[in-house]
Nucleic acid binder design. Structure first.
Lengths: 192, 192, 192, 192
DNA sequence: AATGAATGAGATTTCATTCAT
DNA sequence: TATGAATGAAATCTCATTCAT
């Protein structure tokens, strides 16, 4: 027996999923729990998402889009001095993570032991950094001995790992200390 | 019907588990599969490990011990110049990861989305780095504006993320480029 | 939002159902799929048929009526020589099956393992044959040792089984060979 | 929590399945019901059969083997007069069906509407009849205008349909009347 | 100690059916 | 009359765990 048309069942499922994933992890959450928390029938879950992982992927895609947008906004405002760019970008991500800690953790948190990577999620994010490094090399602002792909992955891993750690307890460090540290270790601002 | 004492049942289970975890990830491996691959009965599995996660933890502990040992050996040989220490340490871990890629991936690979951290495994590893940074600060070799705990986490995340990415396809980068990059971005060798 | 009265919604549902049943079998077709294939809403399905089985029954009833009509037309034209009657009847059914293979298969195909019969569908069809045999016995044209009900069932099973087999691949046999075989084995034309 | 080693769990599942399939049909029986009726856990079901259909197939294979054996025994005893062969064979199957009515119905009963055939089960059975007809043709005992494959299918459909009808209520006809009718309509004993 | 058949809780997934629009 | 999102009972299947041998 159906209920009256639910306002935005999909959004409710996404936010129920986000909340549960963030609290319990992917493995310990099942489709039933998500539907129940969204106060929807299990059938409704499956009429919106193929399965639990499809919902997870959707959360991650939305989060990545949000971070990408925040980063681009920040970069547009900052001067094109590398230091400024790096700091602005890091700060933008930090602010995003602080205001959407669940989404950040669900998107970048560890997923499977034995999985060799942070997966497509991290790959996608490291690409823009890689491109920026190449641009700086072309402009002669950083040395060409650096492998841009490698350096981008390295920086992103650092950023992600640091933020995940910070989000566990934001009292651990001042935002400014985080930005300082991330900037100081950024490949564009270090030299061989 | 009981069988004669199996030579090294535990080792066989560990290596079967390592292999399966590395290939399929924790979630997609079950205790029966591990026992079967070790050519042992499922009952034997449970007489050696409390459950699948106990076996996984044992693999991780052994791997961490191996890495710690390799790092210490390398540091003992290197001069106490920070650059040398950092490079020697990174190289030791790299060599370890290259010769035990499965163990490295199973130990440091992502586990659960929504888990907020790299878990105790990474915590344990970052502690020695944190101490080394404090020592350098005390010796006046690096500035005190750096938060040692934060910097250690940041560096370790970078190292782990980079190695996991590299292990996916070791052809991606030369070992020397990896060492260069990790060293260049190391908090002990950068300044604000 | 309601839509304008659909032209022949029922016919569209019947032919969508026929097509799907024939291709996938009753079990693997659901009411939603039928409605979708008819390009109608699922609600429309239920305003025309009580459920999936009602639609199936309707298809079968129409098919049986078609076969009965074809048989009667053929018999009316044929001489009342038993051989002629039998051949004309068989040929009529054959032609019908060849031009409506889906309907024939959906009507006479196997339905449930463990169901003890060809169901009411076959019963209904065997009745006229039974009556014809009784008439021939009364007229002294065939021996009375034959049990008309049994013989009718036997013949009909043969006809149905043979046609279903033939429809799988009509290249398997000429229509004339089929008519010859069915006639030769017909109880009215054989003797103890 | 396991129970003591069950004596022949597989046999119990097979007979529970046979009984339920015969009473309710494939569609209305599920793996849980079979396991419950066998007084076994559902897990036990799946450690013996891949699914419900695997169990059904096993029942059918065993039944076919039983019928084949019974037929061969009867033929070995009978004279090689076609009439005798045909009657002996029909009688053997009849006896088998009467003493294993559930197995016969589950093996030959209808399965899926829209399925075009009696499936591999009937194919396998018609092959020996086809061969016997070819032998008779080669020996000049029956005319060569008959298509052996077609005639074998036709006869088998008749035999199966007749027996399924008879098993619904064995009081419907004497065994001798059934044998008479089947023999009378057998392609080896009729002529064009 | 070693075995592996048996177990059943629980996760996933399907689909006939309803009813507010 | 037509619609289709929502529903949840029910079926399928997995796998960690036990324990009699």
């Amino acid at each position: 027996m159906p209920r009256p048309r639910i306002e935005d069942a999909e959004d409710r499922l996404l936010s129920a999923g986000l909340n549960l994933f963030a609290r319990l992890g992917t493995e310990r959450v099942n489709s039933n729990a998500i539907a129940r928390r969204a106060r929807l029938g299990i059938g409704t879950f499956y009429s919106h998402f193929a399965d639990k992982h499809a919902l997870l992927r959707e959360i991650q895609m939305r989060t990545l889009a949000g971070i990408r947008g925040a980063r681009l906004d920040a970069l547009a405002t900052a001067s094109d001095e590398p230091l400024e760019q790096v700091r602005a970008s890091a700060e933008a991500v930090l602010r995003f993570a602080r205001s959407h800690p669940e989404a950040y953790r669900v998107t970048f948190g560890r997923e499977r032991a034995g999985a060799s990577t942070h997966g497509p999620v991290v790959s996608e994010s490291s690409r823009p950094i890689e491109k920026a490094l190449r641009r700086l090399q072309a402009a002669g602002r950083i040395d060409t001995s650096l492998d841009p792909e490698l350096a981008a992955r390295a920086y992103l891993s650092m950023e992600v790992g640091t933020l995940l750690w910070w989000l566990e307890d934001p009292g651990r460090a001042e935002m400014s200390a985080l930005v300082d540290t991330l900037a100081r270790m950024h490949p564009a601002l270090t030299r061989a």
